[in-house]
Design a protein around this nucleic acid. Structure first.
Lengths: 216, 216
DNA sequence: CCGCATCCGGGGCGATACTG
DNA sequence: CAGTATCGCCCCGGATGCGG
């Protein structure tokens, strides 16, 4: 990217991160951890392959990303964030919080979706209201890959993948899941809109906010 | 900007804010408040006038900026942030924090500078260590416009402009001022590097961090 | 299959000129 | 003062090729 040539911290940050697709690549690496080129491409629907290649090289030059050789038998190159790259997480958190209102209306017709994109909203909305309770897990299933919400000892974490013995399973469209997690939909209305909620309903009350999170 | 068409909060935010120059325009409006077109241009050295015009229109359509007619005798159009636009402040704070390490080496040869760009680093670095003390003010003078740091009752604020009776005046190059405020330079070394510090030196100790803020 | 490199068309961007 | 108009250029998007 052409430099703004301004002696200002925001401008300098944008000199590194302001290019198209750059921050979304960092998003994928933060959500998925060290990733192969092909996995990044799958998590970034719409990106041109030459752009992904260019951006990864620029991020590497900027000290945000390192590439490393995975040990055999995988023997492929992995892209992972440096500590400097991990530090971008708070930027993306704020950016995501600001962007959440745009998701309230549901996806645009051409919008694509990946299950792991639910991870941040979930972590941002949910808190463990019963820190002394037993560990619980909830699996979220969309048409895409599933993600697991795990709560234990007051902390809530979300990761891509499945749970062994989930206390509850929520299946349906992403915006309904978001509505449920943010507190804008109660269980009854969510089900009416087509959301399937199986298992122990009580675990939801342990995690959901008492009042709807600010979405506008 | 062409939409990423991803049902993800970060992507939706970047659909609105990801264009070149857009976040820097928001920076100016956050730092300077409601501004005229010409003032924005002066605060955004390097921007093409048609781009500024385009971006302001897009930001207006997105509900981030409103234009209003200033009352006579000024009778000019002012651009100001909506509450939705004000909410971008935390994004730029995080982005600025991430970008600060790039300023440690000083400005690049072609870098331009505006005094008000010191406002955020100053607010981020400084805290009022003596909340019960009398109000104090420090004026920062670069070759550009001056800014005033005001501390009272535990709060530190920075605004463009001059102080009536500043307790101290610091004059010099921006990166030396940054070094002094962040704690990386002590008064002796700062002076050796050409910084002028006049007035009551004690007020600095009231505001500066005990140990250097993390810059790398 | 994985990780790119290359080519090409279109549009966003940059610089300057000009106007009510 | 507050923009509009114009014109190159280069970035971006999309497709294809290609070595390991």
């Amino acid at each position: 990217m052409r430099s703004y040539s301004q002696f200002c911290a925001v401008a300098k940050a944008l000199d590194v991160l302001g290019d198209r697709w750059t921050l979304l690549i960092v998003r994928e690496l933060l959500l998925a951890g060290p990733s192969r080129y092909t996995d990044l491409r799958n998590g970034l629907p719409g990106i041109a392959t030459n752009l992904l290649s260019d951006r990864l090289r620029e991020l590497e030059a900027a000290g945000v990303v390192v590439r490393e050789q995975a040990p055999p038998p995988v023997a492929t190159t992995l892209f992972k964030l440096t500590p400097r790259g991990e530090a971008i997480r708070s930027v993306l958190h704020e950016l995501g919080l600001w962007g959440i209102p745009y998701m309230a209306e549901g996806p645009a017709p051409q919008d694509v979706f990946r299950g792991r994109w639910l991870a941040w909203p979930a972590e941002l909305f949910l808190t463990d209201l019963e820190p002394d309770g037993p560990p619980v897990s909830i699996e979220l299933r969309t048409e895409e890959e599933p993600v697991v919400i795990e709560a234990a000892a007051g902390a809530v974490h979300v990761r891509p993948g499945s749970a062994e013995h989930p206390d509850a399973v929520i299946s349906g469209a992403p915006q309904e899941i978001l509505g449920l997690l943010s507190g804008h939909l109660d269980v009854r209305r969510a089900r009416k809109r087509g959301l399937r909620i199986d298992g122990e309903l009580g675990v939801l009350d342990r995690l959901r906010p008492a009042q709807p999170a600010a979405l506008g």
